[in-house]
Structure formats: C-alpha cells, structure tokens
C-alpha cells in the first residue's frame, strides 16, 4: 500500500534521509521513532506530497505518485502541530475533506469526546482537545492510508490509551496502511510490533515488541 524506495533528502546541508526503503501493507501499522531532527516528519511529508525527495520513489496503492498533488493521494493525515484552521469550527475542520468526512464528522467528534465542542473554534479549546479534533479530521474520511505525526502527544495518559485504541479500530475497519511517527518508544509500544528507528538517515527495524 505504501512503498518507499531509496528516498533521499537533504535539509540545511545535512542528509536527513539517506536511501530509506519501507513497505507498509494494507491493514498494517508501522511506527517510526528516532531522535528529534532525525527526519521522521520529513519522511511523512514526502509521502504526503508536501515535500519532494531528491531521489527515490514513493508508491501508494502500487502507483508512483511523483506527479500527484497532495490531495489526489487520498490520505488521512494528522500533522505534528494539529494545523486546525482557526476560522472554522471543529466540525467544519473535521468535515473538510469531502462528503465521506462530512457524514462522519459528528460521529468522529463524539468518539473523540468532543461532540459538545463541535461548534467551537480551535482557539476556544484546549491543546489536548485540539489534538483530538485533528485526529478526528485524519480519521473521518476513512482513507486507506493514514499518516500520523505524533498523534498522542499533549494527551493525558488515559486519553492516549483511548485514542490509540480508536486509531487501531479505524485502521482495521478500513484495512488501512498506517505510518505512525512516535517520539518515544513507550508510545510506539502501544501500537504495533513493527517499529523502525530512523537514525543517520537510515531506517533500521527494531526488535519486535510483544504486547
């Protein structure tokens, strides 16, 4: 479903991705960890089409997407900084990506514990609530590819477990390939046995973690 081969990227004169190869099959979840500045978010942005790789190929659903605009890739994306549009309500934010999302917006907000805040704007909710709304936006359209950039940060421990369970539920229901960036190994262990560490521009599979 997601296939990366030989991805290279240099930022500020430093090679952050140096020939990254990765395959994520349908229904599979892969976690990327690594130190700050290791290039995890950059890799996610390359898959989303927000940045171009200097070298290498990105294939989604078996198709090379080099010339495909970001929205044509049909992705559910959660950004590191939430990126909720401040002039739209939470419901309008979640419903943004089309008819499918519009139909499920309230349902997703309810699942995120934000049903009563649906009419509020992002500036009127807490950081944790904004984070959950951003997750609802990423999941609302039931895309078959999910890109999640540290979706559980800023959440209370109980909420983290609940949101992680929700992501897995949605991912299984849609049979989605999920690429999940996690800053710490503890968060990664909540999710999947397939954990990769990005260091020195290269990906290495970490020892499997049995839950």
């Amino acid at each position: 479903m997601i296939e990366l081969s030989g991805i290279r990227k240099t930022l500020g004169g430093r090679r952050v991705l140096d020939g990254v190869d990765l395959r994520v099959a349908a229904g599979e979840c892969v976690v990327l960890t690594g130190d700050s500045g290791a290039g995890k978010s950059t890799l996610l942005r390359i898959v989303a089409g927000l940045e171009a790789a200097e070298d290498g190929h990105v294939k989604l659903r078996g198709v090379d997407v080099a010339t495909m605009a970001p929205h044509e890739r049909r992705l559910g994306v959660q950004f590191q900084e939430s990126a909720l549009w401040p002039h739209l309500t939470l419901e309008e934010n979640v419903a943004f990506s089309g008819k499918a999302a519009k139909g499920r917006a309230l349902q997703c907000l309810e699942r995120a514990g934000l049903r009563e805040l649906a009419g509020r704007r992002p500036g009127d909710v807490s950081g944790g609530e904004a984070r959950r709304a951003a997750l609802a936006r990423a999941l609302a359209a039931q895309c078959d590819i999910l890109l999640l950039d540290e979706p559980l940060t800023q959440l209370q421990p109980a909420a983290r477990l609940e949101m992680a369970a929700w992501i897995r539920e949605e991912q299984r229901a849609a049979g989605a390939a999920c690429l999940w960036v996690a800053h710490d190994a503890e968060e990664a262990a909540l999710l999947t046995p397939r954990i990769y560490v990005l260091a020195g521009g290269r990906l290495t599979e970490r020892e499997s973690v049995e839950r």
């Binding site: 927000l50 994306v77 089309g98």
Partner: peptide, 19 residues
C-alpha cells in the same frame, strides 16, 4: 501547516476558497 493541511485534505479550489 494550515495551508498544507488544506492541500492534503481537499481539492485546490476548496483549499483556496475555504481556507
């Protein structure tokens, strides 16, 4: 990130008009 999110989640006209 706000403009990027719009670029990923919707068609260009919608990202332009609504965001």
């Amino acid at each position: 990130a706000l403009l990027e999110a719009a670029a990923v989640l919707g068609p260009p006209w919608q990202a332009f008009v609504k965001v």
